[in-house]
Simulated scan of single mutants.
Amino acid sequence: MTTKIIFGSNKLGELNESIIEQMLERFHLGKFVSGERTNIGAMGQTMFIQSTKGEYVLKGNPLFPGQFEEERFYIENLAQKTMLALPTPYIIDFEEDLIGWSYVLMPRKKGTHLNEIQEQLLVEGERQIVTEVAKVLAVMHQWKTPIFGEYQPVSAEIQPFASSYFQWLKARILHWLEDAKKYSTITELDEQFTLDLIEQAKSAFDSLKEAEFVMGDFKVGNFVVDKIDGQWKVSGIFDFTNAYFADGSNDLVKMFLYYIEKEKQSLVHELFRVYVQLTQKNREQMKNRLTIHMLHQRVLDWGCFKAMGAVTWDDNLSFSEWVQPYIAVIKEL
């Protein structure tokens, strides 16, 4: 379920102090002090809660059946396998008597989102954070499985993709390129450009012998950083709703795009360099796969921005013209 694109969201709705007090009391988490809706991430599903025993995140009204069980599976396994700063314990209340839906309570991780401090960072701080991000991803991607697919909470098993991982990813890209025709012009040249890129990378995907954990939505909104003993560290990672098992390097793409948009391309190169050094992955094969991961993300972004009428680039550019500079960044790594 997590690998499906979710455009809508189940919001928290109206929550009063009495209901939150009962949620906290049910799990012996203290008395309610204050609460505020989050303004980033989790598709409107979360709010921060301060109690007499600590700070927590409430996540409610699941987007699909099994969302919370699936996320707990990933978080608990990563917590057992790594020392990453994860939101554990991840407490699920399956009872719907308080508000009409199940919900999660988890500890709030201390720190700040990178985009909130980016402009104040010195060069040394930027490099520290890039290195920490690379370390976090390298550690996550050490969790491996022979099955390329996603966890299904009903069967409590990893369900393989219906076809090979490469064919699944190819079909996904072509589907969203076709869907983009509803909102924009997609030419035959755009389609051929896309197909050529995909086929050129086939051998790099065929070289994958085992699947790695993929967070699926690793971006500045889903982790926080904090300065600890004078060094910047990733102090919290959250929102594993889009996780699955495939090619871990996909998790680099949204951070690449973040730095590209900030006109900090040198940090794209640094993130790639440190990640390759830590994982010892084949550099050229990884670059070939990253071109497709970048293509995939940009297809989704193109369709989304066109549908919303929120285009921020030259609207006269064709899809292939628009995406080529991003592909070039990968090829230059």
Rank of each mutant, 00 (worst) to 15 (best):
I6D: 02
G8W: 12
G8Q: 11
N10T: 12
N10I: 02
K11D: 13
G13D: 05
G13E: 03
E14H: 12
L15C: 02
M23D: 05
R26L: 13
T38C: 11
N39L: 11
G41V: 10
S51H: 09
V57L: 09
L58T: 08
L63E: 08
F64T: 03
Q67Y: 01
Y74P: 02
M83C: 02
L86A: 04
I92G: 05
V104A: 02
R108A: 12
K109Q: 13
K109Y: 00
Q118L: 15
V123S: 06
R127Q: 12
V133S: 02
V133Q: 08
A134M: 12
L137Y: 06
F148S: 03
Q152E: 12
Q152M: 01
P153C: 05
A156H: 14
I158L: 10
F161Q: 07
A162H: 13
K170W: 00
A171R: 04
L174G: 01
Y183M: 03
I186V: 15
Q192M: 09
F193N: 03
D196A: 06
L197A: 03
S203Q: 12
L208T: 14
E210H: 12
E212T: 15
M215G: 02
W232I: 04
S235C: 07
I237M: 05
F240E: 08
F240D: 07
T241Q: 14
A243Q: 05
S249L: 07
S249F: 08
L252C: 11
L252D: 10
K254N: 14
F256P: 01
L257G: 03
Y258Q: 07
I260H: 13
Q265A: 01
H269D: 14
F272S: 02
L278G: 04
N282I: 11
Q285F: 11
M286G: 02
K287M: 12
K287A: 15
N288E: 15
I292A: 07
R298L: 15
A310E: 13
L317G: 03
E321F: 01
P325C: 10
K331Y: 05
